Simulated scan of single mutants.
Amino acid sequence: MSQSSGPYEPEQLRYYLPDPTVAVERAFGVAKHASLLDGLVAATKVVVVSLLLSLPVTTAVLLAGLVTFSVYGSNKLVDAEDEVNCPDRASFVARNRELLLFGTLGAYVVALGLAALEGLDSFLLTLVPAVAAVLYSTPWLPLDGGTRVKDLLVANTVLVAGSWALYVAFIPVAYADASVSMTAVVVCAFFFLQTVVAGEVLNARDVVGDRAEGVRTMATVFGVRRTQWALYALDALSLGLLALAATADILAVPLAVALVPAVGYSVLVTTLVGRDIDRRRLGTCRDCQYVLMLCCVAVAV
């Protein structure tokens, strides 16, 4: 009879379940690096514009998402500054270059096809962001043997903001076959100002990489602090535009008031520039402005 060395203890089995927070964070990272979130933000803007102009929510929302995904995704394929500014994004793009290339090109072809079905005005509007992207990134200007608009102070942000504001403000109008009203012009101007602010916030975030590549932005030329004051002034101008539009009965007072929290949120995000925070999350914080804008406008309608 053998002696027992002690009570029998069965081997403990350990089961490792996947951490859902890690999975969510990875999925969010893929959506961000692949410009899917950029497309979602643009779609949200078009919904906001449709509500502000009392237009039906149409396929223009999908169209804006496809176009934005295509343009921003294509830009990431050639953006050398990402090696310094966003190394994780640069690594993702390098690993998935062919997939992103086919995806972005395919998305724009689909977008152009959908726009053509709606008419010439929709088709031409859908070409605007692509034309702006080419003008922005290629050395076509006859300065110093060829200069990109991307390298020109203020002009780079104005071109980008102008093309996107024009597109998101008027593609719902074109899809609804509506006339261009003064309200649409004011909405376009408002989105232009807010897009300029958003663009320069990201430029201030990426100041190190932009300086290394010789890209001239407000932050690289004037410094982050002066850039912040300029952006505060643009937000103040946005509020002035809303007040003027409401006073002149161009934009209904409840709708004008509904846009004020989004401008306040913009000011808040601008104050975070240059502070000791995770730079990678600053752009996401800025994009959340449009979720807030949609919620407030939806309540006001």
Score class of each variant (00 low, 15 high):
Ser2Val: 09
Ser2Ala: 13
Ser4Ala: 15
Pro7Arg: 11
Glu11Gly: 14
Glu11Met: 07
Arg14Val: 15
Val22Arg: 07
Ala23Val: 05
Glu25Cys: 01
Arg26Ile: 14
Ala31Asp: 03
Lys32Val: 02
Ser35Tyr: 04
Leu36Ala: 07
Val41Glu: 03
Ser50Trp: 01
Leu51Val: 05
Leu52Thr: 00
Ser54His: 14
Ser54Thr: 06
Ser54Val: 01
Leu55Pro: 10
Val57Gly: 09
Thr68Asn: 13
Thr68Ala: 09
Phe69Gln: 00
Tyr72Phe: 09
Tyr72Met: 11
Tyr72Ser: 05
Gly73Gln: 03
Ser74Ile: 11
Ser74Phe: 05
Asn75Tyr: 03
Lys76Tyr: 05
Leu77Ala: 02
Ala80Trp: 04
Glu81Pro: 01
Asp82Met: 06
Val84Glu: 04
Cys86Ser: 11
Phe92Pro: 02
Ala94Phe: 03
Leu100Asp: 00
Gly103Gln: 02
Thr104Val: 10
Leu105Lys: 03
Tyr108Leu: 11
Val109Arg: 07
Gly113Ile: 12
Ala115Pro: 07
Ala116Arg: 02
Gly119Arg: 10
Gly119Cys: 13
Ser122Met: 01
Thr126Cys: 14
Leu127Ala: 13
Pro129Gly: 06
Ala130Asp: 11
Val131Gly: 07
Leu135Arg: 04
Pro139Trp: 12
Trp140Leu: 15
Leu141Ala: 15
Gly145Gln: 13
Leu152Pro: 01
Leu153Lys: 09
Thr157Ser: 07
Leu159Tyr: 05
Leu159Ser: 08
Ala161Lys: 03
Trp164Arg: 11
Trp164Asp: 02
Pro172Glu: 10
Pro172Val: 08
Val173Cys: 06
Ala174Pro: 04
Ala176Val: 09
Ala176His: 06
Asp177Thr: 04
Ala178Lys: 08
Ala178Asn: 04
Ser181Met: 09
Val186Tyr: 10
Ala189Glu: 14
Ala189Cys: 15
Phe192Arg: 01
Gln194Ile: 01
Thr195Lys: 02
Ala198Cys: 12
Gly199Trp: 03
Leu202Phe: 07
Ala204Met: 09
Arg205Phe: 09
Asp206Leu: 03
Val208Trp: 00
Val208His: 00
Ala212Phe: 01
Gly214Ile: 11
Gly214Thr: 05
Gly214Trp: 12
Arg216Leu: 13
Phe222Val: 04
Phe222Ser: 00
Arg225Ala: 15
Arg225Glu: 15
Arg226Phe: 11
Gln228His: 09
Gln228Leu: 09
Trp229Leu: 14
Ala230Val: 10
Ala230Trp: 04
Tyr232Arg: 15
Ala233His: 10
Ala233Cys: 12
Asp235Ile: 07
Leu237Glu: 08
Leu237Gln: 05
Ser238Thr: 11
Leu239Arg: 00
Leu239Phe: 08
Leu241Cys: 12
Leu242Trp: 02
Leu244Trp: 14
Ala245Glu: 09
Ala245Thr: 12
Asp249Met: 11
Ile250Thr: 14
Leu251Ala: 06
Ala256Gln: 03
Leu259Pro: 03
Gly264Leu: 13
Leu268Gly: 07
Val269Cys: 10
Thr271Ala: 14
Leu272Tyr: 02
Ile277Leu: 12
Ile277Lys: 09
Ile277Glu: 12
Gly283Trp: 05
Arg286His: 05
Leu294Asp: 04
Leu294Ile: 06
Cys296Ile: 12
Cys296Met: 14
Cys296Asp: 02
Val297Lys: 03
Ala298Glu: 07
Val299Thr: 09
Ala300Pro: 01
Ala300Trp: 03
Val301Ala: 06
